[in-house]
């Protein structure tokens, strides 16, 4: 009984300690030293997908393989991704990408409370996906889907299995305030990009390189 109580007390402390270590040491982690960086790309829908593909397009070939995650209600993104990847493909080489689907965690205008339920539901699918792929990096730009995926990536680090870099790019649409996803990912991400100087001033941890998409 005593042992049980000690465990119950120790586990959360250990968890919080590991959480702190993983979030704080991200900036020293350099997965690229081994020559390539596998990326989990979270494609939202519509505008989000277009924007993130423009970012992926700018990355050199060393960022491979690329695993795209799309919401299962999203019909357009898969087509965009396939078109994009076939265009990027060098002659005589194998495609370096996969597409995975998970349930959407939050539709536009969905209420907070039901967002929590559907995000938990999405987590059920995100955990096995991220644990199977074990990417070096998660790249995302705002759809709600990226919260459970980043949480799963964080958990890989907390459990000591793999440190996954979390890179978040806030949409150009956000000038003075972060999106809901942005507010959450500001706390969890290793590199947080904003595209307006007014946001950089408000959120000092963020990286501002001007407009990047």
């Amino acid at each position: 009984m005593f042992l049980f109580a000690v465990l119950a007390l120790l586990l959360p402390v250990l968890f919080i300690y590991r959480f702190y270590v993983v979030v704080k040491t991200g900036l020293r982690h350099q997965p690229g030293r081994k020559g390539s960086v596998s990326v989990l790309v979270v494609a939202g829908s519509g505008g989000h997908t277009t924007e993130i593909l423009r970012l992926v397009e700018s990355l050199p070939a060393a960022y491979a393989p690329r695993h795209y995650v799309i919401a299962d209600t999203d019909k357009m993104s898969e087509e965009k991704i396939c078109t994009f990847e076939s265009w990027k493909l060098q002659p005589d080489s194998q495609p370096q990408y996969t597409i995975c689907r998970i349930p959407r965690s939050r539709e536009v205008h969905q209420s907070w409370s039901s967002s929590v339920v559907s995000t938990l539901n999405a987590l059920r699918f995100s955990l096995p996906l991220v644990f199977r792929l074990r990417p070096d990096m998660v790249l995302c730009n705002g759809p709600g889907t990226c919260v459970p995926l980043c949480a799963a990536a964080l958990l890989l680090g907390i459990m000591g299995m793999k440190k996954v870099l979390i890179v978040y790019v806030e949409s150009i649409c956000r000038v003075h305030s972060l999106s809901l996803t942005g507010k959450i990912l500001y706390l969890l991400s290793d590199y947080f990009f904003v595209q307006w100087s007014s946001l950089r001033d408000k959120y000092p941890k963020s990286v501002f390189l001007g407009r990047i998409v």
């Binding site: 997965p31 423009r54 970012l55 390189l209 001007g210 998409v213």
Partner: peptide, 20 residues
Amino acid sequence: FPPGQPKTFANFLDKVVGLK
């Protein structure tokens, strides 16, 4: 309105992940 420069993002990332 000048277009965005994703290349600056890529250069930054290359450096911090240790590819450069």
